[in-house]
Each structure stands twice: as C-alpha cells, then as structure tokens.
Design a protein around this nucleic acid. Structure first.
Ligand SMILES: [Zn+2]
Ligand SMILES: [Zn+2]
Ligand SMILES: [Zn+2]
Ligand SMILES: [Zn+2]
Lengths: 131, 131
DNA sequence: CTTGACCCTGTAGTTGCTACAGGGAGCATA
DNA sequence: TATGCTCCCTGTAGCAACTACAGGGTCAAG
C-alpha cells in the first residue's frame, strides 16, 4: 500500500492528475486510511501505469477507458482492441501528413524573409490577404 | 460594410469565433448599426483573414497577437517576426518527430497482435506494466 | 510541541473555440 | 397587419486533459 504521492512518483503522474482520473471514473476510488488519506495497492499501480502508457502513446481518455473495460472483461477476442489501435494509428498518420505540409509552407515562408523592415517582410506578406 | 455572417462566410469563420476574437481583443469592436448589429469594413476583413491564415499555419493566438502588433507598428525590422516563425517551425519539427516515434511504437504493437483472445493480446500486453 | 512535508476538498484556470438559451431586428409574403 | 423566416444580440456553459490554487487537516521527526 502506498500514498497518492508515492503512486504519482512511481508512475510519473501528478497527484492532481490521479485525483482527476478518480473523479472521471478512470480509477476506482481507493481505500482510505484513518486520516482519510488514499492508499493504493499494486493493482491500482498497474492500472495507472496502463493508463499512462496509453496516454503516452496518444490514446484519448475515452479510448483508454474502452481498452480498460475490454481488458476487464477479459474473455472476449481482441478485435475491438485491434480496431481502437488501428484507428488511433490512422489519426497519427493524418496528423503527421498535416504537419509535414505545414512545415513545408512555413519553411518556404521563412526562407523568403530577407531580414529588412516589416513593411516589406515576406512572412507578413505571406500571411496577409490580397497579395 | 458587411454583417458578421457575411464576414464569417468570406473568411470561413464561424460567427461565434469572430465574436470570440473580439472578446479576447484580437479584433477591435466594430461599428454597429442602429439595430445594434456589428458591421465590418475591408480592414476588418483583411485583419481576420490574416488571423485565420496564421491559425491555419498553426500559430497560437498569442503568436498571432504578437504578429499583428508588430505589423501595426510597421516601422521596425522584422527580426521578431522571423523569430516567432522560426520558433513555431521548431515546434512543428518536434511534433513531427514525436509523432513518427509514436507511429513506430504503435505499428510494432499492432503488428504483433494475432487476433486471438484478449487475455493474450500483445497490444494489451504492450500497454501493461511488468512484462 | 512545533515545523514541515504531505494529504484533503472544492473551485477555477488553461487553449481555442463551439453550442445553446432566450431574446431582438429586418425583410418577404399572405 | 400578421406571420414567418433568417439573421443578429448577450451571456453562459461545455469540450479535452489536465493544472493550480485556497484553505484547511494529518503525520512523523526533532
Ligand atoms: Zn524581408
Ligand atoms: Zn521579414
Ligand atoms: Zn493476439
Ligand atoms: Zn490482440
């Protein structure tokens, strides 16, 4: 059994975040000490680690919730898990493509600036309409 | 002179968003008609177009605010503009790198799933601690 | 017995919008 | 004139996923 601060350190999570996860029902309310302090067992540690790892991989809290409930059921086949992961992957691909297009536009813009006065700066010009 | 709806159509911006920009001081409060309707001139159109283009390029509203105030001053040299753009570009590069790393992790994970039961799904396993 | 580190609840802030609710304005049509 | 209809107004609350207090309580060490 460990305190919320210890759990936070073990999972690299702020205390407020852990309380937030509890509030939105992602973590079950843990046992309390006599002094009303939360105490967490190893299962809670595992669950929070799972959440954090999923978050690090960019899954939304709703996706994490779905993954958790699927693992809680346990018996079913993993098609749904697979689909969640693939959907997420597709979104990542889209974001990468968007950002690469953006980078291209930005670099063109930046390279055209000759470092003179704002009135003829190409960056500003590129942002302005009617040019 | 045009109504807020017409301005929105011209700049592909929702009416609520325009009012929001006014509220946070990004757009000046425009003139009003007798019936208390906002009316916008060409300058407002140009300014909102600038804002939208900057937002499309991923600049934050704070960055847009800075760019706008720099163009409003007008006389100065464009070093600051340049720096804002380069900072933004660096952030985009960082995001791209992060997402590509993420994509790699995700694809490894997804490819290891054999489509069986959740209890031995490699995706879940990869998300779980102590493996 | 006091100090300091930790914990508690509850609320409000962040970013960049978006979505109402509950009304008024202005124009066309019957 | 009445009735729609579309647009506009203000003000507030919601979204994601936290983060940051304020104003207290608890607990172990010195
Ligand atoms: Zn230049
Ligand atoms: Zn320049
Ligand atoms: Zn499998
Ligand atoms: Zn699987």
């Amino acid at each position: 059994m460990r305190s919320i601060g210890a759990l936070g350190k073990a999972t690299n999570t702020k205390v407020e975040t852990i309380r937030y996860y509890e509030r939105i029902g992602l973590l079950a309310p843990p046992q309390r000490t006599d002094g009303n302090y939360r105490t967490y067992d190893d299962e809670a540690l595992a669950r929070l680690s799972f959440i954090r790892r999923s978050r690090d991989l960019g899954f939304s809290l709703d996706q994490v919730r779905a993954l958790l409930s699927l693992t809680d059921q346990g018996t079913q086949d993993c098609k749904t898990v697979d689909r969640i992961a693939r959907d997420h992957m597709a979104e990542i691909e889209r974001k990468i493509a968007d950002l690469i297009a953006l980078r291209h536009e930005l670099s063109t813009m930046i390279e055209s600036c000759c470092g003179g006065s704002i009135s003829d700066c190409r960056i500003i010009e590129a942002l302005s309409p009617f040019d």
